[in-house]
Protein backbone atom coordinates (compact mmCIF):
# COMPACT_ATOMS: atom_id res chain seq x y z
CA UNK A 1 0.00 0.00 0.00
CA UNK A 2 1.13 3.47 -0.95
CA UNK A 3 -0.02 5.01 2.32
CA UNK A 4 1.86 2.43 4.34
CA UNK A 5 5.16 3.17 2.64
CA UNK A 6 4.64 6.88 3.22
CA UNK A 7 3.82 6.28 6.87
CA UNK A 8 6.87 4.06 7.24
CA UNK A 9 9.11 6.69 5.64
CA UNK A 10 7.72 9.37 7.93
CA UNK A 11 8.32 7.21 10.96
CA UNK A 12 11.89 6.53 9.81
CA UNK A 13 12.46 10.23 9.37
CA UNK A 14 11.25 10.86 12.90
CA UNK A 15 13.65 8.20 14.21
CA UNK A 16 16.49 9.79 12.23
CA UNK A 17 15.48 13.16 13.65
CA UNK A 18 15.71 11.88 17.23
CA UNK A 19 19.12 10.31 16.51
CA UNK A 20 20.45 13.55 15.04
CA UNK A 21 19.06 15.43 18.03
CA UNK A 22 20.90 13.10 20.43
CA UNK A 23 24.15 13.45 18.47
CA UNK A 24 23.86 17.24 18.47
CA UNK A 25 23.06 17.23 22.18
CA UNK A 26 26.19 15.24 23.03
CA UNK A 27 28.44 16.92 20.47
CA UNK A 28 29.51 20.00 22.49
CA UNK A 29 30.24 18.11 25.73
CA UNK A 30 33.89 17.22 24.96
CA UNK A 31 34.59 20.56 23.23
CA UNK A 32 36.43 23.13 25.34
CA UNK A 33 37.42 25.50 22.56
CA UNK A 34 35.18 28.58 22.61
CA UNK A 35 35.64 29.28 18.91
CA UNK A 36 34.42 25.81 17.94
CA UNK A 37 31.51 26.06 20.37
CA UNK A 38 30.49 29.35 18.79
CA UNK A 39 30.77 27.81 15.33
CA UNK A 40 28.46 24.93 16.26
CA UNK A 41 25.93 27.26 17.89
CA UNK A 42 25.79 29.49 14.80
CA UNK A 43 25.45 26.47 12.52
CA UNK A 44 22.51 25.08 14.49
CA UNK A 45 20.89 28.52 14.75
CA UNK A 46 21.10 28.97 10.96
CA UNK A 47 19.77 25.45 10.42
CA UNK A 48 16.71 26.47 12.46
CA UNK A 49 16.31 29.83 10.73
CA UNK A 50 16.67 28.24 7.34
CA UNK A 51 14.11 25.59 8.23
CA UNK A 52 11.73 28.43 9.13
CA UNK A 53 12.42 29.98 5.72
CA UNK A 54 11.97 26.56 4.12
CA UNK A 55 8.39 26.40 5.37
CA UNK A 56 7.45 29.30 3.10
CA UNK A 57 10.21 29.14 0.48
CA UNK A 58 10.55 25.38 0.17
CA UNK A 59 7.19 23.82 0.91
CA UNK A 60 5.04 26.66 -0.40
CA UNK A 61 7.50 27.76 -3.10
CA UNK A 62 7.44 31.48 -2.35
CA UNK A 63 11.07 32.57 -2.67
CA UNK A 64 11.29 35.27 -0.02
CA UNK A 65 14.45 37.34 -0.04
CA UNK A 66 13.16 39.52 2.80
CA UNK A 67 13.22 37.18 5.79
CA UNK A 68 15.87 39.37 7.37
CA UNK A 69 12.97 41.69 8.22
CA UNK A 70 11.25 39.11 10.47
CA UNK A 71 14.59 38.13 11.97
CA UNK A 72 15.34 41.77 12.80
CA UNK A 73 11.83 42.41 14.09
CA UNK A 74 12.19 39.43 16.40
CA UNK A 75 15.52 40.69 17.69
CA UNK A 76 14.15 44.19 18.27
CA UNK A 77 10.82 43.17 19.88
CA UNK A 78 12.34 40.87 22.49
CA UNK A 79 15.19 43.30 23.22
CA UNK A 80 12.86 46.30 23.55
CA UNK A 81 10.53 44.33 25.84
CA UNK A 82 13.53 43.37 27.97
CA UNK A 83 15.16 46.81 28.02
CA UNK A 84 12.11 49.02 28.54
CA UNK A 85 9.58 46.72 30.25
CA UNK A 86 11.83 44.18 31.93
CA UNK A 87 10.02 41.26 30.32
CA UNK A 88 12.46 38.34 30.14
CA UNK A 89 13.32 37.13 26.63
CA UNK A 90 12.03 33.63 27.35
CA UNK A 91 8.57 35.25 27.32
CA UNK A 92 9.55 38.11 25.01
CA UNK A 93 10.59 35.76 22.23
CA UNK A 94 7.03 34.51 21.85
CA UNK A 95 5.80 38.10 21.64
CA UNK A 96 8.55 38.57 19.05
CA UNK A 97 7.29 35.52 17.19
CA UNK A 98 3.73 36.85 17.13
CA UNK A 99 4.88 40.26 15.87
CA UNK A 100 7.01 38.47 13.25
CA UNK A 101 4.00 36.43 12.13
CA UNK A 102 1.83 39.56 11.92
CA UNK A 103 4.57 41.31 9.94
CA UNK A 104 4.76 38.34 7.57
CA UNK A 105 0.99 38.53 7.07
CA UNK A 106 1.14 42.29 6.44
CA UNK A 107 3.92 41.77 3.89
CA UNK A 108 2.15 38.79 2.35
CA UNK A 109 -1.18 40.57 1.92
CA UNK A 110 0.09 42.75 -0.95
CA UNK A 111 3.06 40.66 -2.10
CA UNK A 112 1.35 37.32 -2.62
CA UNK A 113 -0.57 38.89 -5.49
CA UNK A 114 2.79 38.91 -7.27
CA UNK A 115 4.39 35.84 -8.74
CA UNK A 116 7.88 34.60 -9.54
CA UNK A 117 10.55 37.26 -9.76
CA UNK A 118 8.07 40.04 -8.99
CA UNK A 119 7.47 38.45 -5.60
CA UNK A 120 11.18 37.93 -4.88
CA UNK A 121 12.05 41.54 -5.74
CA UNK A 122 9.12 42.88 -3.71
CA UNK A 123 10.35 41.02 -0.63
CA UNK A 124 13.83 42.47 -1.12
CA UNK A 125 12.32 45.96 -1.23
CA UNK A 126 10.10 45.43 1.82
CA UNK A 127 13.13 44.20 3.77
CA UNK A 128 15.10 47.24 2.69
CA UNK A 129 12.28 49.60 3.76
CA UNK A 130 12.29 47.95 7.18
CA UNK A 131 16.07 48.44 7.43
CA UNK A 132 15.81 52.14 6.51
CA UNK A 133 12.95 52.76 8.95
CA UNK A 134 14.77 51.12 11.88
CA UNK A 135 17.91 53.04 10.92
CA UNK A 136 16.02 56.31 11.38
CA UNK A 137 13.74 55.33 14.28
CA UNK A 138 15.05 56.94 17.47
CA UNK A 139 12.73 54.97 19.78
CA UNK A 140 14.64 51.77 18.99
CA UNK A 141 18.05 53.40 19.09
CA UNK A 142 18.22 54.26 15.36
CA UNK A 143 21.69 53.65 13.92
CA UNK A 144 23.27 53.32 17.37
CA UNK A 145 21.37 50.13 18.13
CA UNK A 146 20.50 48.57 21.47
CA UNK A 147 22.62 46.93 24.15
CA UNK A 148 21.08 44.04 26.02
CA UNK A 149 21.80 44.72 29.71
CA UNK A 150 23.38 41.82 31.58
CA UNK A 151 21.35 40.73 34.62
CA UNK A 152 23.60 37.92 35.80
CA UNK A 153 23.50 34.29 34.79
CA UNK A 154 19.91 33.21 34.39
CA UNK A 155 17.75 31.06 32.17
CA UNK A 156 14.76 33.40 32.16
CA UNK A 157 16.76 36.07 30.38
CA UNK A 158 18.85 33.52 28.46
CA UNK A 159 22.03 35.13 29.72
CA UNK A 160 25.10 33.02 30.26
CA UNK A 161 28.61 34.39 30.49
CA UNK A 162 30.63 31.57 32.01
CA UNK A 163 29.76 28.88 29.47
CA UNK A 164 28.37 28.66 25.98
CA UNK A 165 26.82 25.30 26.69
CA UNK A 166 23.36 26.56 27.78
CA UNK A 167 23.10 28.52 24.54
CA UNK A 168 23.93 25.41 22.60
CA UNK A 169 20.82 23.79 24.04
CA UNK A 170 18.69 26.90 23.46
CA UNK A 171 19.50 26.98 19.72
CA UNK A 172 19.22 23.20 19.53
CA UNK A 173 15.72 23.36 21.01
CA UNK A 174 14.86 26.09 18.50
CA UNK A 175 16.19 24.11 15.53
CA UNK A 176 14.50 20.93 16.72
CA UNK A 177 11.20 22.77 17.07
CA UNK A 178 11.36 24.11 13.50
CA UNK A 179 12.26 20.62 12.27
CA UNK A 180 9.26 19.09 14.05
CA UNK A 181 6.98 21.77 12.63
CA UNK A 182 8.29 21.04 9.13
CA UNK A 183 7.81 17.31 9.75
CA UNK A 184 4.22 17.80 10.89
CA UNK A 185 3.52 20.09 7.92
CA UNK A 186 4.93 17.53 5.47
CA UNK A 187 2.35 14.97 6.45
CA UNK A 188 -0.57 17.33 6.97
CA UNK A 189 -3.31 18.45 4.63
CA UNK A 190 -1.78 21.95 4.69
CA UNK A 191 1.58 20.58 3.59
CA UNK A 192 0.01 18.90 0.58
CA UNK A 193 -1.92 22.05 -0.34
CA UNK A 194 1.22 24.19 -0.07
CA UNK A 195 3.25 21.89 -2.26
CA UNK A 196 0.42 21.90 -4.78
CA UNK A 197 0.53 25.72 -4.76
CA UNK A 198 4.28 25.55 -5.31
CA UNK A 199 4.24 23.01 -8.13
CA UNK A 200 1.29 24.25 -10.13
CA UNK A 201 -0.94 27.09 -8.99
CA UNK A 202 -3.58 26.54 -11.64
CA UNK A 203 -3.87 22.83 -11.00
CA UNK A 204 -4.00 23.47 -7.25
CA UNK A 205 -6.81 25.97 -7.69
CA UNK A 206 -8.75 23.56 -9.85
CA UNK A 207 -8.60 21.06 -6.98
CA UNK A 208 -10.15 23.67 -4.67
CA UNK A 209 -6.90 24.47 -2.87
CA UNK A 210 -7.29 27.98 -1.52
CA UNK A 211 -4.08 29.50 -2.83
CA UNK A 212 -3.95 32.84 -1.06
CA UNK A 213 -4.83 31.50 2.44
CA UNK A 214 -2.26 28.73 1.95
CA UNK A 215 0.49 31.25 1.24
CA UNK A 216 -0.61 33.42 4.16
CA UNK A 217 -0.58 30.48 6.58
CA UNK A 218 2.88 29.42 5.43
CA UNK A 219 4.13 33.00 5.74
CA UNK A 220 2.76 33.39 9.27
CA UNK A 221 4.37 30.19 10.53
CA UNK A 222 7.62 31.00 8.75
CA UNK A 223 7.68 34.58 10.08
CA UNK A 224 6.87 33.38 13.60
CA UNK A 225 9.87 31.07 13.85
CA UNK A 226 12.22 33.41 12.00
CA UNK A 227 11.42 36.12 14.56
CA UNK A 228 12.00 33.73 17.46
CA UNK A 229 15.38 32.94 15.94
CA UNK A 230 16.10 36.66 15.81
CA UNK A 231 15.16 37.04 19.50
CA UNK A 232 17.54 34.21 20.44
CA UNK A 233 20.30 35.71 18.32
CA UNK A 234 19.90 39.10 20.03
CA UNK A 235 20.35 37.45 23.44
CA UNK A 236 23.33 35.51 22.17
CA UNK A 237 25.29 38.47 20.80
CA UNK A 238 24.07 41.01 23.39
CA UNK A 239 23.97 43.94 20.99
CA UNK A 240 21.81 44.68 17.97
CA UNK A 241 21.69 47.45 15.40
CA UNK A 242 20.05 47.64 11.95
CA UNK A 243 23.26 46.56 10.21
CA UNK A 244 23.71 43.48 12.35
CA UNK A 245 20.14 42.13 12.27
CA UNK A 246 18.24 43.85 9.44
CA UNK A 247 20.77 44.09 6.60
CA UNK A 248 19.52 42.56 3.39
CA UNK A 249 22.45 40.14 3.42
CA UNK A 250 20.71 38.38 6.34
CA UNK A 251 17.75 37.55 4.15
CA UNK A 252 20.03 35.64 1.81
CA UNK A 253 22.04 34.05 4.64
CA UNK A 254 18.78 32.66 6.02
CA UNK A 255 17.65 31.27 2.66
CA UNK A 256 20.97 29.85 1.46
CA UNK A 257 21.33 26.75 3.67
CA UNK A 258 17.87 25.51 2.66
CA UNK A 259 18.45 26.29 -1.01
CA UNK A 260 21.86 24.62 -1.25
CA UNK A 261 21.05 21.82 1.20
CA UNK A 262 17.82 20.89 -0.51
CA UNK A 263 14.85 23.19 -0.77
CA UNK A 264 11.55 21.79 0.45
CA UNK A 265 13.23 18.91 2.24
CA UNK A 266 13.40 18.13 5.96
CA UNK A 267 17.18 17.79 6.07
CA UNK A 268 18.21 20.40 3.52
CA UNK A 269 18.50 23.34 5.95
CA UNK A 270 20.68 21.41 8.42
CA UNK A 271 22.93 19.91 5.74
CA UNK A 272 23.26 23.27 4.02
CA UNK A 273 24.07 25.03 7.29
CA UNK A 274 26.70 22.42 8.18
CA UNK A 275 28.48 23.12 4.89
CA UNK A 276 27.94 26.87 4.58
CA UNK A 277 28.27 28.35 8.06
CA UNK A 278 31.64 26.77 9.00
CA UNK A 279 32.96 27.56 5.49
CA UNK A 280 32.06 31.22 5.77
CA UNK A 281 33.21 31.55 9.40
CA UNK A 282 36.49 29.65 8.94
CA UNK A 283 37.47 31.39 5.72
CA UNK A 284 36.66 34.73 7.32
CA UNK A 285 38.78 33.92 10.38
CA UNK A 286 41.75 32.47 8.56
CA UNK A 287 41.71 34.30 5.25
CA UNK A 288 39.70 37.44 5.96
CA UNK A 289 42.95 39.28 6.55
CA UNK A 290 43.94 38.89 2.91
CA UNK A 291 40.73 40.76 2.10
CA UNK A 292 38.35 39.19 -0.34
CA UNK A 293 39.57 35.61 -0.63
CA UNK A 294 36.98 34.52 1.94
CA UNK A 295 34.18 36.04 -0.14
CA UNK A 296 35.56 34.48 -3.33
CA UNK A 297 35.57 31.02 -1.76
CA UNK A 298 32.09 31.49 -0.30
CA UNK A 299 30.63 32.85 -3.54
CA UNK A 300 32.37 30.21 -5.63
CA UNK A 301 31.03 27.47 -3.35
CA UNK A 302 27.48 28.76 -3.78
CA UNK A 303 27.83 28.78 -7.58
CA UNK A 304 29.36 25.31 -7.72
CA UNK A 305 26.80 23.69 -5.40
CA UNK A 306 23.86 25.36 -7.13
CA UNK A 307 25.04 24.18 -10.55
CA UNK A 308 26.29 20.73 -9.58
CA UNK A 309 23.49 19.80 -7.17
CA UNK A 310 20.34 21.69 -8.18
CA UNK A 311 18.24 19.45 -5.91
CA UNK A 312 20.53 20.25 -3.01
CA UNK A 313 23.26 18.51 -1.08
CA UNK A 314 20.84 16.07 0.57
CA UNK A 315 20.59 14.27 -2.75
CA UNK A 316 24.23 13.25 -2.18
CA UNK A 317 23.21 11.46 1.00
CA UNK A 318 20.71 9.34 -0.89
CA UNK A 319 17.81 10.75 1.10
CA UNK A 320 14.73 10.47 -1.00
CA UNK A 321 12.56 13.35 -2.00
CA UNK A 322 9.95 14.52 0.45
CA UNK A 323 6.64 12.76 0.79
CA UNK A 324 4.33 13.00 -2.17
CA UNK A 325 5.79 16.00 -3.96
CA UNK A 326 7.74 16.41 -7.13
CA UNK A 327 10.79 18.58 -6.72
CA UNK A 328 9.74 20.78 -9.58
CA UNK A 329 10.93 24.33 -9.70
CA UNK A 330 8.81 27.30 -8.86
CA UNK A 331 9.78 29.99 -11.30
Amino acid sequence: MMTNSILRRRRNELVAGVLVLIILAVLPLPIRDVYTQNLIILTILYAGLSQAWNILGGYCGQISLGHGLYFGIGAYVSTMLFVSAGIPPTIGMFAAGIVGAVAALLVGWPCFRLSGHYYAIATVVVGEIGYLLFLNWDFVGAATGLYVPFHGENWAALQFRTSKLPFHYVVLAFAALTWIVAWVIEGSRWGYSWRAVRDDVTAARSLAVRVFPSKMAAAAISGFFTAIGGAIYAQYVGYIDPDSVLASSFSVLIALPAVLGGVGTLWGPLVGAIVLIPTSELTRSYMGGAGGIDLMIYGGLIVVIALARPTGLVSLLGIRKQVGGANAAPT
Binding site: I63, V263, G300, A329, P330
Partner: peptide, 20 residues
Protein backbone atom coordinates in the same frame (compact mmCIF):
# COMPACT_ATOMS: atom_id res chain seq x y z
CA UNK B 1 15.26 20.71 -11.05
CA UNK B 2 14.69 23.88 -9.08
CA UNK B 3 15.59 25.99 -12.09
CA UNK B 4 14.21 29.22 -10.65
CA UNK B 5 16.23 28.96 -7.44
CA UNK B 6 19.41 27.78 -9.16
CA UNK B 7 19.33 30.85 -11.38
CA UNK B 8 18.81 33.22 -8.47
CA UNK B 9 21.59 31.73 -6.38
CA UNK B 10 24.12 31.19 -9.17
CA UNK B 11 24.05 34.90 -10.01
CA UNK B 12 24.01 35.67 -6.30
CA UNK B 13 27.11 33.54 -5.67
CA UNK B 14 28.74 35.22 -8.65
CA UNK B 15 28.00 38.61 -7.07
CA UNK B 16 29.74 37.61 -3.82
CA UNK B 17 32.66 36.18 -5.80
CA UNK B 18 33.15 39.36 -7.84
CA UNK B 19 32.86 41.54 -4.73
CA UNK B 20 35.55 39.44 -3.03
Amino acid sequence: FNRGMVQIFVTFGLAIFIRG
